[in-house]
């Protein structure tokens, strides 16, 4: 399980967001360059049609590493409505580099692929929180990551996630929510698929952060 919120930010304010995050997290940012392939089952395979993601972390040394990720449905009901983050099932498994070939053999086809480029912070703040800020790129030709172009030029996506369990998701959700409040001047974070647009005050907040290097508490 994981708690997740996301939002969008104009690329021109990303540097300010990075300064703010650096101050809040107290850890070094990590580069993010992930090739994400979404696969879907062929028509007659499976009780229901299914989808699985393969993530290739291109920056890992000595060679890129692969992860299979399955994202399940979001928690529903009155309890879920009361919290401001999405709680959903999510399972990951590191795999050897021939996992794509395996899924092709098992009857999965490439649905779409993206290249996410940006940075991420991983830190402990009442929960194990990860924040990623990235531009989402699409490929003009299959697997042509060197020719990737932004899906939404001038706009980047911010995703905050934290692993949770059925026992502790309430506390984790609260930790994620309270962390998101610190970012509110620059980016508005909400449950995925509920777009809230960019923050109108972002330009002013960014200008303030850039001028004093993030030293002032907002």
């Amino acid at each position: 399980m994981e708690c997740v919120v996301q939002g969008i930010i104009e690329t021109q304010h990303v540097e300010a967001l990075e300064i703010l995050l650096q101050g809040l997290c107290g850890v070094q940012r990590e580069r993010l360059r992930v090739h994400e392939l979404t696969l879907k089952s062929v028509p007659n395979l499976g009780v229901v049609s299914s989808e699985v993601r393969l993530l290739c972390d291109l920056d890992q040394q000595p060679e890129p590493t692969w992860t299979v990720k399955h994202v399940g449905g979001a928690m529903r009901g009155a309890g879920a409505d009361q919290i401001s983050v999405m709680v959903r099932t999510m399972i990951e498994s590191k795999v050897s580099k021939n996992a794509l070939r395996m899924f092709y053999s098992l009857g999965y086809k490439l649905d779409h692929e993206l290249l996410k480029v940006g940075f991420a912070f991983h830190f402990q703040r009442a929960a194990q929180i990860s924040v990623s800020v990235s531009s989402v790129n699409k490929m003009p030709k299959i697997h042509a990551i060197d020719e990737a172009v932004p899906v939404t030029p001038g706009m980047q996506i911010v995703v905050v996630t934290a692993p949770a369990t059925p026992e502790n998701y309430g506390e984790v959700a609260a930790a994620v929510s309270s962390f998101c409040e610190f970012l509110a001047p620059l980016v508005h974070l909400s449950k995925p698929f509920i777009s809230t647009g960019v923050v109108p005050t972002a330009a002013a907040a960014a200008a303030s952060l850039m001028s004093d290097g993030g030293g002032t508490t907002l």
Partner: peptide
């Protein structure tokens, strides 16, 4: 995982078994 007919062997974390269950394929 070993797909003998395709000559494929894949190493994964043990959690891949839960992913296979979830996929229901």
């Amino acid at each position: 995982f070993i797909i003998r007919s395709q000559r494929i062997v894949v190493e994964a974390d043990a959690s891949i078994q839960i992913i296979m269950e979830k996929l229901q394929s």
